[in-house]
């Protein structure tokens, strides 16, 4: 465990010392604040558009952070050859992979925590209303989402050699799933035949990332979700992240390093 957390620590340190996350954070804050200062019929209580803009930017940033942090890990270690001194130590490749996962996931969670604080601040000032339990649910589901994405990206990074092709493929899968995942079944029913079976197969086998996006519930102040549903989502995310990670470890273990 110490080995895994040591690897994770380096990943987190790297995220903290690179500027990318700060740029995304300040961009989100800046755009939200600028839009928040727009005068709309002299009504200062209008808040939902601002919440939507802020959350949407947060979601985009989080996808970018998760994919690009995870996609870099193994290829950069290969390229700068730091993988050699690391693997020459008594550490298994699975431990390295798990450490990378833990590091990327925690890095995502840390940046998400900062983003959600910003969001709670902005929406709280606007609405004079702090549904912290709801925000926590959204934050936790967002973290789970990042976990699946990180695991998927790590799996991609031991499969595809180029960082950019891996990132592009994972990004399009993630965005596609977020936007279409809910509807795949309807499309499958309409398509029918072999295509229908294929789409239904995707529908039932791919992780439903759109579940973890509860932006609309937060924006429109819907009541808090049932905690059992959050619990089920947690198990669901763990199952998928676990599968992707297991595959990634299996592949990484068999790969020659040169």
């Amino acid at each position: 465990m110490q080995k895994i957390s040591a690897v994770a620590g380096v990943v987190i340190l790297e995220m903290i010392r690179r500027k990318d996350v700060y740029v995304l954070f300040f961009l989100t804050a800046l755009i939200t604040l600028v839009l928040g200062s727009v005068d709309l019929f002299g009504d200062a209580k209008i808040a939902r558009y601002l919440k939507e803009v802020c959350l949407t930017l947060m979601w985009m940033s989080s996808v970018i952070i998760a994919v690009f942090t995870a996609a870099r890990q193994i290829p950069v270690e290969r390229e700068s050859r730091t993988l050699f001194p690391l693997l020459a130590k008594p550490i298994t490749r699975s431990e390295v992979m798990l450490g990378k996962f833990l590091g990327c996931w925690l890095a995502c969670c840390i940046s998400l925590a900062a983003f959600y604080l910003l969001f709670a601040l902005i929406s709280g000032i606007r609405e004079q209303h702090w549904p912290l339990a709801n925000y926590f649910q959204a934050f936790w589901l967002h973290c789970l989402f990042s976990g699946i994405v990180v695991a998927l990206t790590l799996l991609g990074s031991v499969w595809f050699t180029a960082v950019s092709s891996n990132a592009t493929i994972v990004l399009s899968c993630v965005v596609g799933m977020l936007l279409l995942g809910r509807h795949l079944h309807k499309v499958a029913v309409k398509a029918g035949g072999i295509a229908g079976h294929f789409l239904d197969g995707l529908y039932f086998s791919l992780p439903h990332l759109e579940w973890f996006d509860v932006r609309d519930l937060i924006i429109h102040n819907w009541p808090r979700m049932d905690w059992t549903i959050v619990g089920q989502d947690t198990l669901y995310a763990c199952a998928y992240a676990g599968c992707f990670l297991a595959l990634a470890c299996w592949r990484f273990r068999r790969q020659p390093i040169h």
Partner: peptide, 29 residues
């Protein structure tokens, strides 16, 4: 590999770490 030390050919260590942090990392491993 517990009792060995290895110096690879042409390696660029984690650029964003200090020497101390790098060694601490390996020591933990």
């Amino acid at each position: 590999r517990q009792r060995i030390g290895y110096l690879p050919e042409l390696t660029y260590y984690y650029k964003f770490l200090t020497a101390e942090e790098l060694l601490r990392f390996y020591a933990k491993i």
